[in-house]
């Protein structure tokens, strides 16, 4: 399988050269193959979210390089990073980051507004995804009126609407009960079977042990301390 993500000697500092300097990532080299389903595992503060944000082109490394589909992205101007985010990634955030006072429909279509895709096609895709996630009946409701599990599904739907190659999920089961967590992993498994790459940061053992997962990367203090099959 070809590589889809590669980080080489990536470090990330916050508040560099200040008394409160934090080394969130320290010399991380990692390759992820296309179609792989991978878990980042580690204690709170170990750098999982930081690594996801570098992979997902949300932030830039202090040193080292990040390549997505064989393209070095860490030095690209902001504008290109935005394009890559839109075209390549679907994000499911730790804090869902939905816009609470607009409808479910609008929320999940948001990634498609800055594109040439016509409104009709946007509606078609949205209805398809909402049907699959079984929340079509909530399409016109405001996000703030939904239950936690429903909101989680809206966040998943939004991550899928642009048909991304890579799905990045940060603690996706944090707010879900076990049956909803199982449902989410089912959806991710299905996508993974369809060829999507899935990268999940979690310390939920249920996720790590799921049959979807091909590989677990263990992190501590900003370093990778080992990888293993589940």
């Amino acid at each position: 399988m070809p590589l889809i993500i590669k980080t080489e000697h990536v470090s990330k500092y916050y508040n560099r050269h200040k008394p409160d300097e934090v080394r969130a990532l320290d010399d991380v080299s990692l390759t992820i193959a296309q179609g792989e389903a991978l878990v980042l595992n580690g204690a709170s503060g170990s750098g999982k979210t930081t690594l996801l944000s570098l992979i997902g082109c949300m932030a830039r490394p202090t040193s080292g390089s990040v390549s997505i589909q064989d393209k070095e992205v860490s030095k690209l101007p902001e504008r290109f990073l935005t394009d890559i985010r839109r075209q390549t990634f679907g994000f499911i955030f730790q804090q869902l980051n939905l816009i609470r006072n607009i409808s479910v429909m609008e929320n999940i279509q948001l990634p498609l507004y800055p594109s040439a895709i016509p409104m009709r096609e946007m509606n078609r895709r949205a209805i398809e995804i909402l049907t699959r996630l079984n929340i079509l009946n909530k399409a016109r409701m405001k996000v703030s009126a939904l239950s936690g599990g429903e909101q989680q599904r809206v966040a998943i739907a939004r991550a899928l609407i642009n048909q991304p190659q890579i799905i990045i999920a940060d603690e996706p089961t944090a707010h879900l009960d076990s049956s909803l967590a199982a449902e989410l992993l089912e959806i991710l498994s299905e996508l993974n079977r369809g060829g999507k790459t899935v990268v999940i940061a979690t310390h939920d053992p249920y996720v790590s042990r799921h049959r979807l997962i091909d590989r677990i990367i263990r992190m501590r203090d900003g370093r990778i301390i080992g990888g293993s099959e589940p």
């Binding site: 839109r86 994000f91 980051n97 948001l110 990634p111 800055p114």
Partner: peptide, 16 residues
């Protein structure tokens, strides 16, 4: 501010 951040994160660029 948060809304702008969300839009940026999911692929809106500064111009949008």
């Amino acid at each position: 501010k948060q809304e702008i951040g969300i839009l940026k994160a999911i692929g809106w660029d500064t111009g949008d």
